[in-house]
């Protein structure tokens, strides 16, 4: 799949933002006044910024409000509703904490739950697609939510939770790659099933419909730079999980914490780039590619 900048920014930033909000709404860290303001501002900037970035992907962003209508069947619509509900509930909680110093536990807990639910809905936009076997698996959702919470723990300075979540997600990510590599082959979709001609013999693509590319090949048969995938995977594992976890294991300083966050965010962008670039859509089979 084509790794569009807007969607990489959207999934990474809103994941981080909602992860941080989930911790802040549970009173972790127990900040008040202007420090609380800064923490919440960072969280809302990331979550909101990510959501705004997602609209750059749309052909007609001016009609975006229509996307709230089909929550009965569409995960994209549900994601929209959950994001708005989350921002409203956590916004109210944040305002009460910052301006009145009161913490309403139930409101905070609801906000945290909504943060997790929103990230889950985001993950389901991808995990629901049978057409992309690599994504159509529970690891997609668990990793989206896990990475969101790991980032949230890191940003909120919850050292122990962050180390635990980072290392768990690192192992899970490795597992997701390992099993994901063979999932297209295991999906049962191949050139024989795509053309229905497998009974006659071995099917190979002789000629594409047009000599140039098209929307389908640009959007869903993205194979550029996959040759670097292994190197990028290693870099992403180190940057996202290992380096931040190691830095947190050292005696705490703000410099180390800042480097850990920077490394994690950079790693997260790499992870998401790989998430899209490595995903093979079954329509590629019609073009003899994957």
């Amino acid at each position: 799949m084509h790794p569009a900048k807007s969607i990489i920014l959207f999934t990474s930033l809103s994941g981080l933002g909602f992860g941080l909000l989930a911790f802040l709404c549970l009173g972790v860290p127990p900040v008040t006044d202007w420090i609380a303001f800064v923490f919440f501002a960072v969280a809302f900037a990331a979550a909101g910024g990510g959501l705004i970035a997602s609209t750059f992907h749309l052909g007609h962003p001016e009609r975006a409000l229509k996307a709230f209508t089909q929550w009965r069947t569409s995960w994209l619509s549900r994601e929209g509703w959950l994001a708005v509900a989350t921002l409203a509930v956590t916004g109210l909680y944040a305002a009460l904490v910052i301006f009145t110093g009161t913490r309403i536990f139930i409101l905070g807990a609801l906000g945290s739950l909504l943060c997790v639910a929103t990230t889950f809905a985001t993950s389901m936009i991808y995990a629901q697609l049978k057409t992309v076997p690599r994504w159509n698996h529970w690891t997609t959702s668990v990793l989206f939510v896990g990475l969101s919470l790991a980032g949230g723990a890191l940003l909120s300075g919850s050292v122990r939770a962050a180390i635990l979540l980072l290392l768990t997600c690192g192992v899970l990510q490795f597992y997701a790659w390992k099993t994901g590599d063979s999932r297209l082959a295991e999906s049962g979709s191949n050139m024989a099933s795509a053309t229905g001609l497998g009974d006659i013999g071995t099917v190979t693509a002789f000629e594409p419909p047009h000599t140039g590319g098209n929307y389908l090949t640009d959007e869903m048969v993205f194979v550029v730079a996959r040759k670097h995938a292994l190197k990028l995977r290693s870099i992403a594992l180190v940057l996202t999980f290992l380096a931040p976890a190691l830095l947190l294991l050292l005696p705490f300083t703000h410099l180390f914490a800042a480097i850990a966050v920077a490394s994690h965010v950079l790693g997260l962008f790499t992870l998401r780039w790989l998430f899209f670039a490595e995903a093979e859509h079954v329509v590629g089979l019609y073009y003899g590619r994957r």
Partner: peptide, 19 residues
Amino acid sequence: DCIGCGLCAWACPYGAREM
């Protein structure tokens, strides 16, 4: 009503939809 999000094209295994 189409916002051009492209998700339907992703969901189609046959490549029947094009933006």
